[in-house]
Design a protein around this nucleic acid. Structure first.
Lengths: 213, 213
DNA sequence: TAGATTGTTAATCGATTAACAATC
DNA sequence: TAGATTGTTAATCGATTAACAATC
């Protein structure tokens, strides 16, 4: 496979294509043209074709795209054909919420452990895991071949924990702490800064109200 | 104030500026140049100046920017000088996690109610709220002048609830349901599609691993 | 074959970066 | 005043959209 760099803007759209194609497949739709998909998803047909063609030709001229095939291919591109082993660091409300997201498992995301530094939580059952002390994290990561760490701890500890995670061989961090991590380029970080997201919403709501006034 | 449209790319960066300036302020730093901020935040000084100048000149030639003043101004632009009344719809793990985020209140985001359609949860205390039945939502929204609704329910119910929220006068929806809502343009929606975010991370982790192989 | 629709090149648009005159 | 740094215009870069030849 050719490895010219794909832009993050394209990657960010793939899960949405995947979601819509999954629904079409469930509805028993067999084929779809870029124009039909454009109407449903409210993006241009041109962008759809450009996006798919970054990864090779999945369609057929004069016919369109086979829904199931395209769905499978995008899943493969996203890496959903492989399983990934994850741990959650921080067993607070958010950590538990993520641990309980059933749908993640369906996609091959296996949450194998959840850690906290609060002794009161040790042993507490969350789904099929019990909360473990942070001290056990290093050996756990190595024994269970953990790929990805989910950081749901306060920002004060996050930068330090992230640095150690990198030393212990983690490849990706899903960061919910409200701070930017400092890790080597080869380590992937996906930030979910919830309060940033809420602030953006507030700006847009206020702006519309100002315009109306 | 002049109302030329500001791009969402700029808006999305404001909370991050706000965060860094808040930290500088806490550290007692009084002034900063775009170049210094550029070094800390890893964005170009040019972009920083362009971004700020969308909203007017906050700096002083030859001097730079006053940290506290800039911090206040960006807060005002984001609308953090006003309070906003929110409700959470869906009292599952995620809804509760958001209800318990203390820091939101500091920014003027007031979570006044939490709703669910599971009778077993009615009356359950979450922070200073108790879970109410969905049926009470309409009157609650009107009596408490609710601006923003946080949707943390499964996707099956989300589209329908969103439509009713709009009828009841909600101005913005913070949508955690894994579905695209269908609301008028004047209603602001900020999506947090967690599984999309995780898929993007997985793609990037796999890609790096492929390159190394 | 004729019609439809992709794959792909070319044109446009918007966002980012660079450069520098204005000015504190 | 001289030096520094903004505010802003111009240049570049990248992403999106349009157009159309290739082809099923």
């Amino acid at each position: 496979m050719d490895n010219k760099e794909i832009s993050q803007a394209v990657i960010a759209r793939l899960p949405r294509y995947f979601r819509y194609l999954g629904e079409l497949k469930n509805d028993g739709i067999e084929r779809i043209s870029s124009q039909e998909l454009s109407d449903i998803m409210k993006v241009t047909a041109s962008q759809i074709r450009q996006d798919f063609n970054n990864f090779g030709g999945f369609g057929q001229q004069g016919y369109g795209y086979k829904v199931e095939y395209l769905y499978e291919e995008i899943g493969r591109i996203l890496g959903l054909d492989k399983t990934h082993n994850l741990i959650i660091i921080g067993a607070g409300n958010l950590g538990q919420a993520l641990a309980n997201y059933i749908n993640f498992e369906r996609r091959g995301f296996l949450f194998l452990g959840i850690f906290d530094n609060n002794p009161k939580l040790y042993g507490m059952k969350t789904r099929n895991m019990e909360v473990r002390p942070i001290e056990e994290m290093e050996s756990f990561i190595k024994e269970n071949q953990i790929d990805i760490a989910v950081l749901t701890i306060p920002k004060s500890g996050a930068v330090g924990v992230a640095e150690r995670l990198v030393q212990w061989g983690i490849r990706g961090i899903w960061n919910f702490a409200h701070v930017d991590l400092n890790v080597p380029e080869s380590i992937q970080v996906e930030n979910v800064h919830l309060s940033d997201s809420l602030m953006k919403l507030i700006y847009n709501v206020n702006r519309v109200e100002d315009e109306e006034a």
